[in-house]
Amino acid sequence: MSDPGKPSVPGGSSGESRRLSRSDAAYVARLARLDISDEELDLYADQLEAVLDYAAEVDSVDTTAVAPMAHPLPLVNVLRPDEPADSLDRDEVLAQAPASEDGRFMVPRILGEAP
């Protein structure tokens, strides 16, 4: 992570007047690894747009005198001492996984490198 900037926001390139285009909805679905049909895409695009509209109501509040905050609670430095606690039993944990081998979780073949 070497190029921090503004968190990316989908949309803006479709030329549509909508807040959230169909292609934005498809992009969000792909990021979430959701396989959805064209009909569902229309449905979710409309719903997501309604969510954005609702959230946009916050924009109408004048915040010019409010400093940006990362958290609503007036708290900083919530820390714990560096003291070991018990971990879970491995066999019990692995028994919850779809597959395991040699004390490790077994997952489907990985395509591509770690991000």
């Binding site: 003291e83 070991p84 606690a85 971990s87 879970l88 491995r90 944990v93 004390g103």
Partner: peptide, 27 residues
Amino acid sequence: KTATKLFCGCRNSFGDEPNTNICPVCL
């Protein structure tokens, strides 16, 4: 070189048996 992980009390220990230092937080 801490004794425990960043967000939970599991040990930070190289070379331990696989998946012996895991808990609900780091899982």
